[in-house]
Amino acid sequence: MSTTIRTPRVASTTLGAEKTRTSPLRPKRSPLLTGVMVLYLIYTLVPLVWLLLSATKTQDDLLSTPGLWFGKSFAFFTNIKDTLTYNDGIFLRWLGNTVLYVVVGAGGATLLATAAGYGLAKYKFAGRRAVFAILLGAVAVPGTALAVPTFLMFSNLGLTNTVWAIIIPSLVSPFGLYLMWVYATDAVPVELLEAARIDGAGEIRTFFTVALRLLAPGIVTTLLFAVVSTWNNYFLPLIMLSKPNLYPLTVGLTQWSNQATGVGARPIYNLVITGSLLTIVPLVIAFLLLQRFWQSGLSAGSVK
């Protein structure tokens, strides 16, 4: 063990003068570059800060006080309470729907993509090339081009205005499959699978007991991106659902926002803003907490 650690260190010191080695490989930190990046950082953060500050304002303050500072009153908790209770707590219903779509849809998508990616990477079966060709072709077709025909098809099957109209299309993630396929190719040594076979484990059991653990970082990445796309899904539920009690958060929020215009306008800007904030928070937390996993998973995926 000690030799494997020491060898690279020896190799790098033999690289020659310490000065040439450190300057390009470990360059000095640049205040100029940091400054430029800070500008971009501000651009990234301004809307989020605006949202956070606006969530503390009453509707009157929203209309009368500067956007990037607090209003006259601090209505943050009142806003949260109002958002959660408005219209008999429909927001909580939308939150529940979103969680359902995410758990079943993104969870299922991850499971299917993991199994299929593993199958494509580790088994050379007849028709494998055809599978690749079909998948590549399908990925190039814009998802939204499919939305209208999918709606008409589901409508004929009586699936519109049911949770299945959202869940079934969410189950397929070609990007997830691609990621898992690339990941499984390198992460699961075939010798280990052969060993499991010799020990008498069936294919399915080998997958669950041996492969799954090795695929974990890839799975977390795939899951996270599937969660984001399901959580953020707007177009599909917009066309599939017309009953507000099935809406996910995204469609519900736009419906609230639309109340501000048209006949009998009843603007609830403060609720839209607070609701938006509440919609963002879970995902941001998930990304921050799982950073280590998804970043390593993505690195593996980009090798190709």
């Binding site: 299929a116 494509l120 088994y123 079966f125 028709g127 494998r128």
Partner: peptide, 8 residues
Amino acid sequence: DSKGWLFV
């Protein structure tokens, strides 16, 4: 191995 279809 055609068992790949099991997963795909």
